[in-house]
């Protein structure tokens, strides 16, 4: 790999994902942006990584870094991949931008053994307070994007996501939160505190042996 110079510390959720991944594994990063996570994983975990990114600027930046990334759309292009092609499939902060999160979640666990999904938690107390006191949609922190311009077309809370996994028969093997200062927080119990104080959550998912039969995961 090309070792970049002047690197700043990795994003907290990237750091968290890197800790979850076995060295030398095969990994697909969906919505890989400029390839920062793939580069981190290649450098520190010798991961054989691939990426899909919807923006051409992101793809170009990634390929220039020597990463294997294609321009594509999670909603339509995952069907191209064969079953169990990867050890891990990562969906980092991309879920709210997807038209069919349900279908994509099932696809993740068809093409990968383990899915690692990180989401921004819309149920964080700051968002709740914003909506309660100002009566306007909270914008993702730092983005300043108004509601009509944000790529996050389907924001959800940690609880929403947990419920969806339950409905789809997906096992949550691990759940970790990052708070507003980027610190990793593990909340025990029912998840109420997590849903209130976790700004981001990282889930490790696998397919339950008894999967809902109606889920129809085979495509293409």
């Amino acid at each position: 790999m090309n070792a970049g110079s002047g690197r700043t510390s990795a994003r907290p959720d990237h750091r968290l994902i890197a800790e979850l991944v076995e060295p030398g594994s095969r990994l697909l990063d969906i919505g890989c942006g400029d390839g920062a996570l793939l580069e981190l994983l290649a450098r520190e975990k010798s991961v054989d990584g691939r990426g899909i990114e919807i923006s051409q600027e992101g793809v170009n930046a990634s390929v220039r870094r020597g990463l294997s990334v294609i321009q594509g759309d999670a909603d339509t292009d995952l069907a191209d991949y064969p079953e169990a092609a990867f050890d891990y499939v990562v969906l980092s902060q991309t879920l709210p931008a997807i038209r069919d999160p349900r279908g994509v979640l099932l696809e993740l666990l068809r093409i990968g053994r383990i899915a690692i999904v990180s989401i921004p938690n819309f149920g964080h107390w700051r968002n709740r307070l914003h909506l309660l006191t100002r009566g306007r949609m909270p914008a993702p922190r730092g983005s300043g994007e108004p509601w009509y311009a944000t790529p996050q077309i389907r924001p959800c809370t940690i609880k929403d996501f947990v419920m969806l996994c339950r409905e789809l028969g997906i096992a949550i093997d691990r759940r970790t939160q990052v708070d507003s200062r980027g610190r990793v927080r593990r909340f025990s119990g029912t998840g109420r505190f997590a849903n209130l104080f976790g700004e981001q959550a990282v889930f490790v998912l696998s397919a339950r042996s008894s999967r809902t039969p109606a889920s129809g995961t085979k495509r293409g």
């Binding site: 054989d48 051409q56 990634s62 390929v63 294997s68 294609i70 321009q71 991949y81």
Partner: peptide, 8 residues
């Protein structure tokens, strides 16, 4: 699952 990059 070949190793591929694609740029338009």
């Amino acid at each position: 699952a070949a190793n591929v990059s694609f740029v338009e």
